[in-house]
Design a protein around this nucleic acid. Sequence first.
DNA 1: GACGTTACTGGACCGCCGGTCCAGTTGTCG
DNA 2: CGACAACTGGACCGGCGGTCCAGTAACGTC
Lengths: 215, 215
Amino acid sequence: MPPSGRLRADAARNRTALLKAVEELLAHHHPAQISMDLVATTAGVGKGTVFHRFGSRDGLMLALIQERAHDLGVAITDGPPPLGPGAPARARLLAFLSAIVDLVSRNKGLLAALGPAIATPTDQGPREAHPVYRTWHGHIAGLAGQERPDLDTDMLAHVLLASVHSEPILDTLARGEGERLDRTLRDLVTALLPERPAPERPDPERPDPEGPGAT
Amino acid sequence: MPPSGRLRADAARNRTALLKAVEELLAHHHPAQISMDLVATTAGVGKGTVFHRFGSRDGLMLALIQERAHDLGVAITDGPPPLGPGAPARARLLAFLSAIVDLVSRNKGLLAALGPAIATPTDQGPREAHPVYRTWHGHIAGLAGQERPDLDTDMLAHVLLASVHSEPILDTLARGEGERLDRTLRDLVTALLPERPAPERPDPERPDPEGPGAT
DNA sequence: GACGTTACTGGACCGCCGGTCCAGTTGTCG
DNA sequence: CGACAACTGGACCGGCGGTCCAGTAACGTC
């Protein structure tokens, strides 16, 4: 998903190599100990290339996240239900949460990098969240608000999303226990949102386990 | 709360000055842009002193957190209900969450520092959570487990605590909207835990709003 | 297919930061 | 009051994110 203008052949190749290198490194090392030099070396390019293309460390991390999140973004706006429009809000929300947990689990360490980069210190004042976070947050808040307009769904969305930046939870995900997080989030949402037909069996809206997301 | 042995007079004075300096700086600047040199200068001591006493940047941050969290720790083990033992688990849990939100709100930026320092990269393998986090997490999981042993309360506790490391939520707290987080967490917990008498009015167990915590 | 333009490349370089070290100093105890 | 140990603090180190610019190689033009 390169930016608007086409890239020169070698530039595109290096861009891909860099993103792949970062992903690989993130899978095995803590983000704090991944230097830009290391990324460049792993990708087989010079450090100047990294900064020329991505501007900064955060830019690199955010580009990776944006790329991995792109498919999910398309799925929730144009895809088929229950992720896409058409299904009831509650079912869409459950599907979306599962998709996010899935996305984060399959890209181990991806969100660990997002944590530091999620907000850019615009100046000295408050900060601005990254587009990907804004999209996810808005989607959750919107869906929840359809069912429970009485709640502070804005804050609720932040709380639900917070789980995928939390170090202890990311550790758990890294150990392959992503389903525990998924189930816990589902429990929270089902407890909070009214379930129209049956009061106890949330299984029907279980989303397709291999939905959109990274490849 | 100096470590076991008593401190030399000047050492104790400098320790206090350093913690106060960090707290002050955290209130006005993003943790990432607070250097150890700056802390030392602000406190009026040399950098060597900082490292001699606290070992590392994380050590300094954790010492500050531990000091602020101490009162709350005492309150939940020995204090009066609803925070301390004696009250029903659900009421204690609600009181505890309010106390944490209160603690974090009053120490703006304190937990922003915890985020990076919450887990120490023990070696290369997994990480170990800080005692303060372990205590909080265990308390929440234990209380929730008394009411809903069927849930994955271990993960639930992580999810609830995640909200106080989340950058967007910390921003909200910094703007003085701590009550929103408090209310949202209460909504989550009351939705999840059975309420024995009436099915809709969680007000009675509202804890004392000015409980224990930092001064 | 040769050529000039232009964007890309990559390694040397910079300033800063966390952390170390040790000579000098100052509190404490017999 | 003296001696010892603990504390102090600034010079110093390795490494990091980020900059710079001379060399290079891809693309449009004829």
